[in-house]
Amino acid sequence: MSLDRSLPSAAPATEKPGAAPTRPVPFRGSGFTHRPHRHVAPLVFAALLILWEIGSRTGFISNISLPAPTEAAEAMADLFRSGMIWKHLSASLFRLTVGWSLGTLLGIAVGLAIGLFSVARAGLSPLVSALFPIPKIALLPLFIVWFGIGEGSKVATILFGSFFPTVIATYGGVDNVDRSLIRMGQSFGLSWSSIVRKIIIPGALPAILSGFRISASIAIILLVAAEMIGAEYGIGAYILMAGALYAIDQLIAGVALLSLLGLAVAWLIGRAEKMLLGWRI
């Protein structure tokens, strides 16, 4: 927040003969509004990296506790040179896309059911509340028993992780659709399915898309957790291996990959919001 207060200017009180002295009203309305600063974020990021590099080179930061950013970059470059990056990335992206897509699709379906039918709401919404807070990582051994040590358990973890937040976002969105619009639809004799398709779903879409942001972040967290058990390839497996070998430069390279993945997902959802919610701006 910018707290640049304008000091009350000591304006000279101009004297007019025969009139009371006048002075301008001091401006008091600044300080609590945000202004866009495009270049600040990259500058902060670059400054941190440079400080870190300087700290490593001068020995202020011990190489054992944290390698220099250039070393992490070298580890990343190694990944590209050996071509391993594509194996890790494709394995992770496959699990992420399949798990998240299925989870959100099911989540939207169940969320709509809860939002639209009172029986579904009465039956399912307590169930969702009971199951949502369970960390899916804790269930991972169970998923391995149910779905096998291969892709099944990893996809299932991500699926369940993205399912619950989507359900909650969807039915919250349906609940918040302007009732007067629904009444309008009824008053014009629109069919039930028309009201759902043309009024309720578009009205709930902003909430559903902001649910996507949450479920996608959860999916990435669970991806790493799932890949730490019985995975040969994948960013999570790479990080786990690096940790086990105490190759911290590789570990940091892997974490940076995860960050990039998160940024890419956020960017994609931002694009989707622009495309689908253009009417909102």
Partner: peptide, 26 residues
Amino acid sequence: LTYVFQDFALLPWRTVEGNVRLVLED
């Protein structure tokens, strides 16, 4: 029997034309 509401009740995601079309599409 057709209503005109105080708060207009227009769908914000449809254009003027789309809002009129809405009630004819069914």
